[in-house]
């Protein structure tokens, strides 16, 4: 599903690579936490999986596509098979909840009929069935992240990438988001989540990949966040 081989990523102007000879295999249906301090390379790795960047050396295969050689015009079609959420939700403030979710389907050319069925369904799934007509500013942070999740999964992606999805949320709200991510994962979607939050990782008992200084220092099935330092 995701196969990363000997990937090194250097950015201009910094002598130390952001990723150094990283190799990682993620299977279909996995739930993987990427943990590590700021600057350990989590975000760089996520960017490579989303093909927002290409590695300096090594290979990245996602969903059967070789992302290093993927021509730019094919990138949009690759991204349609992925869902992404971020710490800052990235909703459109002048569109309602339903319109926000519908927008992502409209811009990839889905029919109005499909959109009218899929949007209420996915909003019910994330627990916002009644709030489709609200604006994002009228929702709590947790609810906004649910909208972002709804938008990410409405097109039934095979992989969901979550970059610190609970970073802006309090622990109780985070729990709700995590259980939603778990539900999505149980539905067959591979989930890769980068996080800082020890409590969440320890509680979920999922696979943990720890990065430090651009290298994988631990890859543990059903692990915790790691040694307290």
């Amino acid at each position: 599903m995701i196969s990363i081989q000997n990937v090194t990523k250097k950015y201009k102007g910094t002598p130390r690579p952001a990723l150094d000879q990283v190799s990682l295999e993620i299977e279909k249906g996995d739930f993987v936490f990427l943990v590590g301090a700021s600057g350990s390379g989590k975000s760089s790795l996520m960017r490579l999986m989303l093909r927002e960047d290409v590695p300096s050396s090594g290979s990245v295969h996602v969903l059967g596509e070789n992302l290093v050689g993927l021509p730019a015009r094919k990138v949009p079609f690759f991204r349609r098979r992925l869902g992404v959420v971020f710490q800052d939700f990235r909703l459109l403030p002048n569109k309602t909840v339903s319109q926000n979710v519908a927008f992502s389907l409209q811009v990839i050319g889905k029919s109005e009929g499909f959109i009218q069925e899929a949007v209420p369904d996915v909003l019910r799934l994330v627990g916002l069935g009644e709030k489709g007509d609200r604006l994002p500013s009228e929702l709590s942070g947790g609810e906004q992240q649910r909208v972002a999740l709804a938008r990410a999964i409405v097109n039934k992606p095979a992989i969901l990438l979550a970059d610190e999805p609970t970073g802006n949320l309090d622990p109780t709200t985070s729990e709700g988001i995590m259980s939603l991510l778990n539900t999505i994962n149980l539905g067959g979607t591979t989930v890769v989540m980068a996080t800082h939050e020890r409590g969440i990782v320890d509680q979920m008992k999922k696979r943990v990949v720890e990065l430090s200084h651009g290298q994988i220092v631990r890859d543990q099935v059903a692990g915790g966040y790691g040694v307290r330092d």
Binding site: R73, F77, R79, R80, S104, I108
Partner: peptide, 16 residues
Amino acid sequence: RELGIMRLVGASNFSI
């Protein structure tokens, strides 16, 4: 913002 989201969800360059 719209453009960022369009690219994220895979809108083709042409439709952007």
